[in-house]
Lab assay of single mutants.
Amino acid sequence: SSQSQGISSSSTSTMPNSSQSSHSSSGTLSSLETVSTQELYSIPEDQEPEDQEPEEPTPAPWARLWALQDGFANLECVNDNYWFGRDKSCEYCFDEPLLKRTDKYRTYSKKHFRIFREVGPKNSYIAYIEDHSGNGTFVNTELVGKGKRRPLNNNSEIALSLSRNKVFVFFDLTVDDQSVYPKALRDEYIMSKTLGSGACGEVKLAFERKTCKKVAIKIISKRKFAIGSAREADPALNVETEIEILKKLNHPCIIKIKNFFDAEDYYIVLELMEGGELFDKVVGNKRLKEATCKLYFYQMLLAVQYLHENGIIHRDLKPENVLLSSQEEDCLIKITDFGHSKILGETSLMRTLCGTPTYLAPEVLVSVGTAGYNRAVDCWSLGVILFICLSGYPPFSEHRTQVSLKDQITSGKYNFIPEVWAEVSEKALDLVKKLLVVDPKARFTTEEALRHPWLQDEDMKRKFQDLLSEENESTALPQVLAQPSTSRKRPREGEAEGAETTKRPAVCAAVL
C-alpha cells in the first residue's frame, strides 16, 4: 500500500463515540455579560531565545476518518491537505487489492476528492471536503458537486459515486458533537469551532446549510445566566432586550441578528466578523496607526449616533465590543453586545450600574441610586476607546495605585505619557480631550465629534464608502454560481449515467 503517514491498516477498528472529540476555545468574540476587562498594560515583551531549542513535538491529529468498508483504511489527519483517489500521487490511494476487485472500484476517479483545513476566524481551523469526481462525492447523502466544497462537521458520513455507498465517517477532533444542539438549529446550521467564551456562554462559528455562508452563533446558558443575574427581577429580559434591539436596528456599522432560537439555552445567530475584536488588534499591534484609528472611530461614531437617534444607549462600549470585518488594516467595524443597552424612556434617566469599570463615565460612578444619566455615557466610553487606539494603553487603570480607579475617572485625570502622545496629531488629542470631559453637559456629542476637524478627511470617508460598496456587492452575490457537472467518465454501479447527480441539489457548496 502507498498510504501516507497516519493511515492504519485495519478497517475493522472499533469506532469511538463522539464524546472523545476535544474542545477548543479562544478569547471572547462577544459576550452578553460584562466580565473583568482584559488588561492592556500587560503586553508581554519578546522573550530571549533559549540556548537549546526544544524538540519539535509530534503533531496531534486534528481529524480521524473511520473506514466503513473492507479495502479502505482508517486515517489520522495530521497534515493540512489529503487527496483521495486511484492515482498513485494521492496521499490516500485507493490501491488495496481487496478494493480493486470490487465492482465499485471502476466508478472512483483518479482524484476523487480531497479533505483539507484552512485558517478561519480567531486563527481556528475549518475542515472542508472538495469534490473532484465525475460520479460524485456525497456528505450525509447530499451531493457536494464537482469543483465545489463544503465544510465537514463531526460525524459526517462520506459516500463515493452513490449516496448509499458510504466509505468513511469523519471525526473532527477539535469540535463538539452536533447532537448536543437543538434540532431546529441543526436543521438550518452546521455548528463548528468555538470563537470565544464568557461567564454565561460562548460564541460558535457555524455555516448556513442552504448557502454555506459563515455566521456566529452566540449561545447563552439559561442556567448560568439565571445564577449570574439572580438580582434582576427577570434575567430573561436581558436576552430578550438584546434580541428586540438587534432586530430593529439596520446600520452597516451595527451587528445584524439573523436568527434566534429559544431552547434549553438561547441561541442568537449573528453575522460573522472575520477580523475578531478591536481589543485583540490593539494588543497585537501595541497601538494602531492614526489613519486606521480615524477610519475605525468614524464608523463607531456613525453607529452610536444611529443608536442615540433611535433612543438607544449602549452602556457597555469597549474594544471587546467592536468587531472587525476582516484581518486587513482597512476594514469595516461593527458594534455588538447589546445586553446592557437601554431604550430611552421619557425621563432619559437610568440608575442601574452596569458596564465595565474602566470605560464607565464619571456620572455613572457618582450617581448610583441618587440620580440618572443619559446618552453622554456612550460618548465618554468612545473617548476611552479612542485614547486606547491612539496610545496603546488605557487612560484609567486600577494599577495606578496612588489613585483609585473611581477617583481617576470622576476627576477626569487620565494617565498622559508625553513621549507616547508625541507621535499623535494635535487634532486627534483634542478630540480625545473633548470626549473625556467629566461634566456630561459639556462633553462632545456624537454629532459634535463628527464635525471635529480631525474627522474632516475626505480620503478616509471615501475609503469607508468603498468598503461599504464591497460589502454590499459580496452579500448580494449568490453563493453557488454554477451547477454541478453531469458529465460521466465512468458508469455508476447499477444505474444510468447522471441518474442521481442531477436530482440532488449541491447543498452548502461554494464554487472555488
Score class of each variant (00 low, 15 high):
K281C: 09
L390F: 01
T370S: 08
G339E: 04
N250Q: 09
D280K: 05
C293Y: 10
D316S: 01
I333G: 00
Y393E: 01
K413M: 00
K433A: 02
V304L: 12
L360A: 14
L512G: 00
T292K: 14
Y306V: 08
T347S: 08
P491G: 02
I268E: 15
P357R: 15
N285D: 12
D439Y: 08
A422R: 14
K441Y: 11
I254L: 11
A482C: 02
P357G: 03
A361F: 02
L349S: 07
R315H: 03
K281Q: 10
V377C: 07
L382G: 02
K281T: 13
K289C: 07
L467H: 13
T292Q: 12
L272Y: 15
G311T: 11
T475L: 06
E419G: 15
R504S: 07
R462A: 12
L365Y: 14
N250P: 12
C379N: 05
T356P: 00
L405Y: 14
M350P: 05
D430S: 02
V368Q: 11
M300P: 04
A449L: 00
I388A: 07
Y298N: 03
T358A: 09
Y298P: 03
V366W: 15
S348Q: 14
L288C: 07
G345L: 08
D330L: 05
K248A: 08
K256D: 07
R400S: 08
L246S: 04
P252R: 05
M273L: 12
L468T: 00
L349C: 10
V364Q: 09
L301M: 01
L344G: 11
L278S: 01
K441W: 11
E471I: 13
T446N: 07
T502W: 15
D457K: 12
G369V: 09
Y306M: 10
A361T: 02
D378P: 01
W421F: 13
A422T: 05
L436S: 03
V377W: 02
Q299I: 02
F416C: 10
E328I: 00
V480D: 13
G372K: 04
R287A: 14
Q299V: 01
K413G: 04
T356W: 01
E244Q: 15
Q483C: 03
V368S: 09
Y414Q: 05
V438M: 06
L249M: 03
K503L: 09
P319R: 05
F260I: 11
M300A: 15
E447Q: 05
G355L: 01
K334F: 00
K318H: 00
G284P: 03
A482Y: 05
P491L: 12
K463V: 09
R504T: 12
P440T: 00
C253W: 02
I243C: 15
I243N: 08
D280F: 14
L365D: 04
P440A: 01
I243Y: 06
A376E: 14
L429R: 08
D262F: 04
K289W: 09
A496K: 10
E447G: 10
V366R: 06
D457M: 04
D466N: 06
T502L: 12
E447K: 06
K334G: 09
D265A: 11
G369Q: 11
F261T: 07
G345C: 11
S411E: 11
G372F: 14
D337S: 00
Y373M: 03
I313S: 04
R351S: 06
N472K: 04
I335T: 10
E448K: 14
E426K: 10
S474W: 05
D265C: 15
F279L: 14
L436F: 01
G276K: 06
A510P: 07
L295C: 10
R504G: 03
E329R: 13
M350I: 12
S381K: 00
K334L: 06
Y296P: 00
I243T: 11
L386V: 04
D457T: 00
I417R: 01
L353H: 09
F338A: 00
